[in-house]
Design a protein around this nucleic acid. Structure first.
Lengths: 154, 154, 154, 154
DNA sequence: TTTT
DNA sequence: TTTT
């Protein structure tokens, strides 16, 4: 009966890396920066940047690998996870990551991240597939559609 | 590319109501109170209670109907939704509800909500089905199990 | 001992309205849309838009009134509040609003919302006031600056 | 224009440690466990426990040091922060912590964590200081009290 | 190190 | 009333 939830809005420091496990599961890694503004004791404006390692699995990994890029602003929702591993000297090390289960691309089509090179091979953020119609505020009680979330990026 | 998320921790004002749509879908309704403490202009401690209408669908509805009761403290995660309906005079009215997709029972087994009557017919909060073993911090990279979430209450 | 928290990312439907109470307190009202995508029973992509009434007080109200505009994408954090009022027929009505205590403008400077007229008098989203220096990951224990939050918009 | 937010509900593994910096600022450290349930490939129920290092500053540190204890269930809201330090071998190490700015004690007065010894010297979770009156849903527009948050634990 |  |  516990809760482990992280909500981040930040920008990717590099392009994401999409890989596959031996069993073929997609996993995408990238890091995003969040920057905090505060005043130091002298009343000077300062900023402090925090870098977050993001891990995404399965279908969302494919979407992240395909549509995200360096500089892109994203909303991430996930959980904190600390893994241990052995470094080259055989010492146990720990790394804390955010395992994301929700991702939303922020900013519009005119806002693809300021550091983005004008590379022609770069994927375009696609038009959202035309939504049949704006669903009106329905009269009264309504059973919601069951969002399987399993085949559309956005 | 938007986010609509609500996180509440509060206590049920009454026992939940579990119903079924004509097509057999379970839906559970209950309300929870959140109380805020603040000081008024005179420096007097005041409290202000907000009531939230919660709607839960499908399997989580069954769980809520079965295990929640008046006074129980819960964590709720969901989204805000405003529906319209017609009142008895034919006027359009709006009601804002929280459609929950996560629920956690809070407090332990000694803490079933202070207003709870010692009714013998009341369901007991069951022991969590013994977890086979405490999973150790695994060495390195690990593909997570896929939580289908579809048959265990907690 | 309760929690009442809302997190929204959406776009303003109109320019915000900034007003002042008789005692001179700033209050800003605007609404933002969040749009959900789902599939109906026929497997058709549908969208459903939810409108949220946002209320902001004091200094953050001034910032919202000054820098937000129709179409702008924002992150909002706040609490749910339902107020009652009497309609013109003397009937008690309820309205649910989000009282915001955090706001972040999303998208970059090239992304001011596409319907924005190129009005010269319109305020520009200012350059973030140059942050003196990128604070390095400091060595060890560090007492944070106390962010009073009271005089800088971003 | 970023967001770095963590929301946790879990139980303290040990009593909190309250200390003071050389300049007299209170800082409280404790760790909380969150446990996730999932099924492995064999359909076996498993659990995985994550430990989170919590850091709290100033007045909230004093409250945590005074009222929290081993086993207590808490709601924590804060931000992720990674600090670096040198280990005894002069190697740079990183530790990720949650810097909390909100804490709510969960469970009622009958739910102090089941391993708690009946030590008479242990602080009691105080009765919430009687709230003068339940503030009614006020008629219409209302300016909120300004919650300075600076002298009351709950 | 907690809790279920 | 926005945005995609």
């Amino acid at each position: 009966m516990s809760v482990n939830k992280v909500i981040l809005v930040g920008n990717l420091g590099k392009d994401p890396e999409l890989r596959y496990t031996p069993t073929g599961t997609a996993v995408c890694n990238f890091s995003i920066a969040t920057t905090e503004r505060f005043k130091d004791r002298d009343g000077q404006q300062q900023t402090k940047t925090e870098w977050h390692n993001i891990v995404v699995w399965r279908q969302l990994a494919e979407i992240c690998g395909k549509y995200l890029h360096k500089g892109k602003q994203v909303y991430i929702e996930g959980k904190i996870q600390t893994r241990s591993y052995e470094d080259r000297d055989g010492n146990k090390r720990y790394i804390t990551e955010i395992v994301a289960d929700e991702m939303r691309m922020l900013g519009g089509r005119n806002d693809e991240g300021y550091q983005r090179p004008a590379a022609p091979a770069q994927p375009q953020q696609p038009q959202a597939q035309s939504s049949a119609q704006q669903q009106p505020a329905s009269g009264g009680f309504q059973e919601p559609g069951y969002n399987t979330d399993d085949d559309i990026p956005f």
